[in-house]
């Protein structure tokens, strides 16, 4: 996990430095803001991963290991779920509301809320979609 964290931090720092150089040289605020913002977008998750890597230590996938060492690890994956589809349709309706008028939002908004709560409830029941 160490290298993963470092990768993000380096990228972020590099882009941030580029942002500073660019900002000082060009005095163009739009690009400067985007560069520095993007740098931060890299650094933050990087710092999170660094903290996380310190907490969990070296994993079997970070070093030489045999498959057996991973045997105890269990990941849980939802077999199937209707909520992504429902949420997708809700989002679509919301976007169509941007184009064809708010009445699309009357369909979209409840659908999105319904789908998000459905998905959350599903996760609570144990279908946690995250890797851990």
């Amino acid at each position: 996990m160490k290298f993963e964290a470092r990768l993000l931090i380096w990228l972020g720092v590099f882009i941030g430095i580029m942002g500073i150089v660019y900002g000082v040289w060009s005095k163009e605020w739009g690009g400067t803001a985007m560069l520095i913002g993007t740098g931060i977008l890299g650094i933050f998750p990087g710092l999170y991963y660094r903290w996380w890597s310190k907490r969990i230590g070296e994993r079997p996938e970070d070093r030489d290991a045999t498959m057996a060492e991973g045997a105890g690890r269990i990941d849980t994956f939802p077999g199937s779920s209707i909520w992504p589809f429902a949420l997708g349709m809700g989002c679509w309706a919301l976007v169509l509301a941007l184009v064809f008028g708010t009445w699309f939002a009357v369909i979209g908004l409840p659908l999105v809320i319904f789908a998000v709560s459905g998905a959350t409830a599903e996760s609570r029941r144990g279908g946690d979609a995250s890797g851990h």
Binding site: P78, P84, F85, G88, W92, V95, A119, A129, S130
Partner: peptide
């Protein structure tokens, strides 16, 4: 065995499909 967030993955496809249609 799969992507880390399988349901997000499915959502991603539906957004892509509806975006294309749009």
């Amino acid at each position: 065995p799969d992507m880390a967030f399988p349901r997000l993955n499915a959502l991603s496809y539906w957004l892509y499909l509806t975006g294309s249609v749009t």
